[in-house]
């Protein structure tokens, strides 16, 4: 496990990755198991939800139009895909991104690493890839769990492809915010600044996406900068998913990280 930087990072994260997965899967399983009870008594909830303003629905239900709590997709949107799963994966990604370059630079361990015969580019890329790998593992496992157990909890109508698409969307959303965090850390080397700004950006863009329609029209275009705008959560028909947008977010994430690695390669280290 300790032959390469990426295996060492995985070695460091093995325990936390297990806990993140156990926690996420437990939550998914509990939400799944509650569905049969909600299925037949969802009308009251639906009335309450439908009475909410569209902006509030967008805030809590991931922008999806599918807010029928008695349907499998509606229930999972409200309880999982609207807020919980995106934020679980984003928090995982941000914490690990802030700890990678900026964290090692802040606590001084980067000094021995960069004086080994290994380039800063390789250090950064290996660390970034492990963060992505961790997010892939978490999103794959809960998607797999949902696919395997959905029928056991009366969600036979729900297409597995929809769950895969939604899982992919959550991953891309988390990839975007994690990449911003990683880039800030690599470019500045300041962990607390990176962590603080990343959460401000994430929560700020989430709230902006929910509330921007209350604001004057000329402020609307700012919402194009919120990655939550492009997240459509779980949709039973998957027609709302724009894969071009997801591809653009992925490419921009990689571009931002590439620029930050280039800065990291040449800048003074703050050790």
């Amino acid at each position: 496990m300790l032959k390469k930087i990426w295996t060492k990072v995985l070695f460091d994260q093995k325990r936390s990755l297990i806990f993140w997965n156990v926690g996420t899967l437990s939550m998914v399983f509990i939400i799944l198991s509650m569905y049969p009870a909600v299925k037949d008594t969802g009308d009251g909830f639906n009335e309450m939800i439908n009475a909410l303003p569209e902006e509030m629905k967008a805030l809590f239900y991931g922008g999806s139009n599918n807010a029928d709590i008695s349907s499998p997709a509606g229930w999972l949107n409200i309880e999982l895909y609207g807020v919980m799963l995106p934020f679980i994966l984003i928090i995982y990604g941000i914490l690990n991104s802030a700890n990678s370059i900026a964290g090692e630079e802040s606590n001084g361990t980067l000094e021995l690493l960069v004086t080994s015969p290994i380039s800063r580019i390789q250090i950064a890329i290996e660390k970034y890839l492990v963060i992505i790998l961790g997010m892939v593992i978490i999103s794959s496992l809960y998607t797999l769990c949902l696919i395997l157990f959905k029928n056991s909890f009366l969600m036979n109508d729900l297409q597995s492809s929809s769950l895969v698409t939604a899982g992919f969307e959550v991953f891309i959303l988390a990839l975007g915010y994690s990449s911003i965090c990683f880039a800030m850390g690599a470019a500045t080397g300041n962990k607390s600044l990176t962590l603080g700004l990343s959460f401000v950006i994430t929560i700020g863009s989430y709230l902006w996406n929910g509330f921007y329609k209350f604001l004057p029209d000329f402020l609307y275009p700012i919402n194009n900068l919120s990655l939550f705008k492009y997240y459509s959560a779980l949709d039973s028909s998957a027609t709302n998913v724009d894969f071009t947008e997801l591809l653009i977010i992925s490419c921009l994430s990689i571009l931002v990280v590439a620029i930050s690695i280039s800065i990291f390669r040449n800048r003074d280290l703050k050790i």
């Binding site: 004086t115 003074d268 280290l269």
Partner: peptide
């Protein structure tokens, strides 16, 4: 020392 080791420019 840090300049000798390329940590600072």
């Amino acid at each position: 020392i840090r300049i000798l080791l390329g940590m600072l420019n």
